[in-house]
Design a protein around this nucleic acid. Structure first.
Lengths: 214, 214
DNA sequence: ACGTGTGAAGTCGTTCACAGCG
DNA sequence: CGCTGTGAACGACTTCACACGT
């Protein structure tokens, strides 16, 4: 049975899948854990441990058959289906996410776009009309939206999250620099662009002041 | 001496700093670890352990003086200064990052903008002219750029990283869905938007198939 | 003989409990 | 007495070593 997959393992599994899809496109029939590890930036040990979370996927003495495990991984990671997404916030970030090809390529379809600013209402981006927030609940229900993306200012984030949850969304990807509280049963992942930059700055700075050990 | 700060601790310290700056603006003079923990979404234990990485910052029986530790935190996290940043890639993501206020508010100034597409050359975004890649090296040196942001397609990412490193950049924030290899002494942080969505999808999906324990 | 799967050992981070200072 | 600082216990993830299937 698929016992819990640790978070770090999940991230790596997604990277392995990327690499394996590339190998599949190139026609590589089989790959060993050490090669996959090198391609994904980790070790053979780690690759085997991670993949073993999902069952017995390889063949001893041979390696992993690319054609076999790509579908297995896709299914295990819930990527063998399409996800309908609502995007809230038609600002700079919202516009970029709306146009981002990476989402659609991986099965994430933004099917509705909302903004509280009436001046933006009716504008069209990437074939989507900007709808007023008042229509969020009905639209999410009608279109069967399962995931929401928040791309609004920090002060508005919690309110938007509440509305998304009330509309029945099961997961939220939050780009606002604010902590969001949701009831159990709803998943949240936050991406804070400034925090990413700040982490980088710290690492750069720490490395200058602390030269590596002798 | 400031011994190594674990990565998860670093992330939390940045969140504490946000909360503390808010408290400072509100005029709160002092705060205890349990309140700060609640505000930042963690525990009092964790707050004290994290802050103790940076030295003895609190007063027993009192708590932490907001006015004291905000500057201390800023200095320890290398946020008591400005960072000059070069942005490569004038596509959707690049445009959004260029206009993103959060960076400037936190001391990250995008001072140069590059794209390999000659048609975009000379366009102006947020008071920045799009420059050709050929000018990257000289411009980075002249302006004293320390950090680079990559917002180009995956296939171009490694090449851009190489050019940034050759130009003397010390850290790279990578938004391309590709692994980037840099020499030691250069820091990289990657943000893969599709992977974030994929993780969310997995968590939502896993929760449906595995109801919580009895 | 080769490469996977996996228990065991090791490392890192979190949680805890209480001593210690204001 | 209140709240911090911190060593110690705990738990999670990683690294390792080797048995096992092909």
């Amino acid at each position: 049975m698929p016992q819990a997959v640790p978070r770090p393992t999940l991230q790596r599994l997604l990277r392995y899948l990327r690499e394996l899809e590339r190998l599949e496109a190139e026609g590589t029939p089989t790959i060993a854990s050490d090669e996959l590890g090198a391609a994904a930036g980790t070790t053979a040990h780690q690759v085997r441990k991670d993949l073993s979370c999902l069952g017995t996927l390889g063949r001893r003495g041979v390696g992993y058959r690319v054609g076999d495990i790509v579908p297995t991984l896709r299914a295990a990671l819930a990527l063998d289906r399409q996800w309908r997404v609502a995007l809230v916030g038609a600002g700079n970030i919202g516009r970029a996410l709306c146009a981002y090809r990476g989402f659609r390529e991986r099965g994430f379809h933004i099917v509705a776009l909302f903004d509280s600013d009436p001046r933006k209402e009716g504008c069209t981006w990437a074939r989507l009309k900007v709808l007023p927030m008042g229509q969020l609940r009905r639209t999410v229900a009608e279109l069967g939206v399962e995931l929401g993306i928040i791309a609004v200012p920090a002060t508005a984030a919690q309110g938007v999250a509440d509305q998304l949850v009330a509309a029945g969304v099961r997961g939220i990807l939050n780009f606002a620099p604010a902590r969001i509280i949701v009831p159990p049963g709803v998943q949240v992942r936050s991406v804070d662009l400034a925090v990413e930059a700040e982490q980088l700055a710290f690492l750069v700075s720490a490395q200058s002041t602390q030269p590596p050990q002798p």
